[in-house]
Design a protein around this nucleic acid. Structure first.
Lengths: 138, 138
DNA sequence: CCGCTCGTCTGGAACTATTCTAAATCTCGT
DNA sequence: ACGAGATTTAGAATAGTTCCAGACGAGCGG
């Protein structure tokens, strides 16, 4: 799943972000996994590669990537925020049993075609967090 | 929206929880508002009534009420968990602009009638968090 | 109604996730 | 290559939550 650094740098530039080593490293790591790592996971994984990345930088980078739309952050009820480089629309299934976060293929549950709720409020995105039980646990 | 304490005590007893002053106070407060207060909001509101409730107790009580199914906790991306005594099924609209959490009338978006996702994973609850913009901000 | 037991409450310390700060460093347009 | 301004860094600070050990009190049996 390793994406070459040049493509990643291109992504960063395309969004008007300066290309820095921490940003490339974080983006490469997030793009390489389908788990939904926490900030701490990101820091650990990158520092395991010999690089040194401070905790504060992990957050800085995650924030700038999020603002640029290159990664998406999500919060689960217990503990730390989780990040995800798959920004194509999809949903998340939060497993009640093991706490794992699994991706759910995107489907329009009948909301987006309207873009508004029946009472008129607008829904801008369709990133839903479903509460359920994953295959491993069922 | 004030519900008399006797009904609340009955609710607690029905769930096998001991009836204590903090529990009644927290439950009464949550039942009286359609905002989605944080633990701190709960503490502030109750202590404003002359009672004294420690921070730890607020969490104790919220946890026991949640375990008993009398209130539901939810986490939003930024900041503190929020609680809600309206446990009838409904969704939440998280406003991107002002951060407010609004209730959305329950609707089966075509998921529950199956109870499973197309790929077979089961979905246990339908408490969805929608990402959008509330009426006040639109 | 009384006393006992165990669940609950309390204040404070501890812990975890995140943000802030101020200085050093680096990117990139010129 | 230079300089302006963005980014990184380590460490301190903050916010939200949990843990702890002791005091308290709800509700059972008598």
């Amino acid at each position: 799943m390793r994406i070459d650094d040049e493509s990643l740098k291109g992504l960063l530039r395309a969004r008007g972000l300066r290309v820095t080593e921490p940003r490339v490293a974080v983006l490469a790591y997030l793009a390489s996994t389908d788990r939904h790592p926490t900030a701490e996971d990101v820091e650990t994984a990158i520092n395991a590669n010999g690089q040194v990345l401070s905790r504060a930088s992990v957050y800085n980078v995650l924030h700038s990537l999020t603002r640029a739309g290159l990664v998406a952050g999500m919060s689960v009820t217990d503990g730390a925020a989780r990040y995800d480089a798959h920004v194509a629309p999809h949903h998340h299934l939060l497993c009640r049993t093991c706490g794992r976060v699994e991706d759910v293929p995107w489907q329009d549950f009948g909301i987006a075609e309207r873009g508004v709720l029946p009472d008129g409020r607008s829904v801008r995105t369709l990133a839903l967090t479903l509460d359920g039980v994953c295959n491993a646990c069922c």
